[in-house]
C-alpha cells in the first residue's frame, strides 16, 4: 500500500513527496504574465490594419448603455459604412439579436462565466463575423465587452480605440474607483445625460477626475434617448475612418 495516501498501489506523489535527486535548474523567463493575450492581440491588430477595419473596444459596468449606443450608431451609420459587432456576455445572445434587428451583422461571444473578453475569443469571433459578411469589406468593428470595469482593462484585444462608458445614474466616482479602465482608454463617454437633472452627478468633477488619470482622454456627453451629443460621436467615427491606415488610437 502507498505510504503517502493509503491507496492500493505505490506511485509518485508530486504534491507531497519531495522533488529530490534530480538536478535543479533555473530558467530565466522575464516576460509579462499577459504575454499569451498580447501575442494574440498583435495578430488581431495586424488583421484589422491590413483589412482597413477600424476597431473599437467598449467597456463599462453592466447597464451603462453600451448596446443602446451601438443600436443608435447602427441606425445612423449603417448606410454610410459597413459595420460589424462582436458582443461579449457571460450568457445569452440577447445583445447580438438587438444589433441584428438593426440590420448589422453581429456575433455573440459567450464567455461562460469569464468576466472579460480575450484576444483569442476575438480572433474566433472575427472569423465568424467575416463568414456572415460573405466577402463584404468591414469598415468599423465594435467590440462590446462583458459588463465589468475591472478585468476588461487588462486585456488588449488588438483594438485601435478603447472606449469607457459611465452612465449618469451610476454616480460620479467611477473614474477614481476604477482608474485602470480610464488610464488605458482613449475615449470616455458619459451616457444617459438626459437624467442629469435627477441625479447628484457633478459632470465637471467627473471630467476633471478622468482627465487627471489620463490627460489624453476624449470625452463625449450623450443621451441616446434625446440624441444629445450623438452627432459629435458620429463625427468622431467619421473622422477616424478618414485617417489613413494603419489607424491609431488617441484623439
Amino acid at each position: 500500500m502507498c505510504d503517502t495516501c493509503g491507496c492500493e498501489n505505490s506511485h509518485e506523489h508530486p504534491l507531497h513527496s519531495p522533488l529530490t535527486k534530480g538536478e535543479v535548474k533555473t530558467v530565466e523567463i522575464n516576460q509579462s504574465l499577459l504575454k499569451a493575450n498580447e501575442d494574440a492581440a498583435s495578430h488581431n491588430r495586424e488583421h484589422f490594419d491590413s483589412n482597413g477595419i477600424f476597431t473599437l473596444n467598449l467597456i463599462s459596468s453592466p447597464g451603462s448603455g453600451k448596446t443602446t449606443l451601438l443600436e443608435k450608431t447602427a441606425e445612423a451609420l449603417k448606410d454610410e459604412f459597413s459595420l460589424g459587432v462582436l458582443e461579449g456576455d457571460i450568457e445569452t445572445d440577447l445583445d447580438a439579436e438587438r444589433i441584428r434587428k438593426k440590420g448589422v451583422p453581429a456575433v455573440q461571444l459567450t464567455t461562460g462565466g469569464a468576466c472579460h473578453l480575450d484576444s483569442v475569443l476575438i480572433h474566433k469571433g472575427m472569423h465568424e463575423l467575416e463568414h456572415q459578411l460573405n466577402g463584404k469589406k468591414m469598415d468599423i468593428l465594435f467590440i462590446e465587452n462583458v459588463g465589468n470595469l475591472v478585468c476588461p482593462s487588462f486585456f488588449n484585444l488588438g483594438e485601435h480605440v478603447r472606449v469607457v462608458l459611465v452612465s449618469v445614474p451610476e454616480g460620479p466616482d467611477k473614474p477614481i474607483k476604477y482608474p485602470k479602465a480610464f488610464k488605458t482608454s482613449h475615449v470616455f463617454i458619459i451616457t444617459k445625460s438626459d437624467l442629469l437633472p435627477y441625479f447628484d452627478f457633478d459632470i465637471e468633477k467627473v471630467k476633471k477626475d478622468a482627465l487627471s488619470l489620463n490627460p489624453d482622454l476624449k470625452i463625449f456627453v450623450i443621451s441616446a434617448t434625446t440624441g444629445d451629443g450623438m452627432g459629435e460621436w458620429f463625427t468622431f467615427l467619421r473622422n477616424k475612418l478618414k485617417s489613413p491606415p494603419p489607424l491609431r488610437g488617441g484623439d
Binding site: L19, G22, V27, I29, L33, A114, C115, H116
Partner: peptide, 28 residues
C-alpha cells in the same frame, strides 16, 4: 477575477517552457 485567466495562461506558458527544458517537475 482576471487573476484566474492570468494564472491559467501562466500555467500553460510554464508547462511549455518546462517541456522544452525536459523538466521532470517545476519546483518554484
Amino acid at each position: 477575477m482576471h487573476e484566474v485567466s492570468i494564472a491559467l495562461s501562466m500555467v500553460n506558458e510554464l508547462a511549455r517552457i518546462a517541456k522544452e527544458n525536459n523538466a521532470k517537475y517545476i519546483s518554484a
